[in-house]
Simulated assay, not measured.
Amino acid sequence: MSWLWIGVIGATVVAFVQKWLGYQVPPAVLEKPRIARVTALLPVALLGALVATQAVADGQHLTADARLPALAVAALLLALRAPFLAVVIAAAVVAAVCRALGWG
């Protein structure tokens, strides 16, 4: 067995144990106001970090390509409370037009 598979199996076990430990937390701990605020905002922060990373990173390098204007259009439409499907389609169209014009 290679070191890669040992790492994959080890990461799987760690992820399982971490999730299991999360289920063992008493409800009284999760109902505290500070913990409730953190657990409510944590998914938003993680998703924002993922979007930011995917929008400007290309491997080990920062890049500015068609994803940035598409992200800007999506953010604007979300701020204007547009339907999510319209946001996705508009961002895809902007990215496609930018790529067709040779940017990205």
Rank of each mutant, 00 (worst) to 15 (best):
63 T>K: 04
24 Q>E: 14
25 V>S: 01
70 A>V: 03
32 K>C: 09
99 R>F: 02
82 A>Q: 01
27 P>G: 00
4 L>P: 01
43 P>M: 11
53 T>W: 11
58 D>W: 01
7 G>K: 08
2 S>Q: 10
48 G>M: 14
92 A>M: 12
69 P>E: 02
75 A>I: 07
74 A>H: 07
99 R>K: 10
23 Y>V: 01
23 Y>A: 06
37 R>P: 08
102 G>P: 03
52 A>Y: 08
34 R>V: 11
101 L>D: 08
51 V>F: 00
51 V>K: 02
31 E>W: 02
24 Q>G: 09
47 L>P: 09
5 W>N: 09
55 A>M: 12
22 G>Q: 11
18 Q>Y: 09
26 P>H: 14
60 Q>L: 07
63 T>I: 14
90 A>D: 04
43 P>I: 06
81 R>L: 04
91 A>W: 04
100 A>N: 06
26 P>T: 07
38 V>L: 13
18 Q>C: 13
12 T>V: 12
3 W>V: 11
54 Q>C: 04
19 K>Y: 15
46 L>I: 15
61 H>E: 14
68 L>F: 03
13 V>M: 13
36 A>E: 12
103 W>C: 08
59 G>V: 05
21 L>P: 07
29 V>W: 10
83 P>L: 09
14 V>N: 10
18 Q>W: 11
80 L>G: 06
68 L>G: 00
89 I>P: 06
91 A>Y: 07
31 E>C: 09
23 Y>M: 05
64 A>H: 01
32 K>P: 11
71 L>K: 01
15 A>H: 02
67 R>M: 06
94 V>F: 06
45 A>F: 06
79 A>F: 14
67 R>H: 04
77 L>W: 10
98 C>P: 11
61 H>K: 14
62 L>N: 10
21 L>F: 12
32 K>N: 06
61 H>A: 14
78 L>I: 01
88 V>Y: 04
2 S>F: 08
45 A>V: 15
55 A>K: 00
84 F>D: 09
59 G>E: 10
17 V>H: 03
78 L>R: 00
92 A>Y: 07
57 A>L: 14
102 G>M: 02
42 L>A: 14
64 A>Q: 10
35 I>C: 10
8 V>D: 04
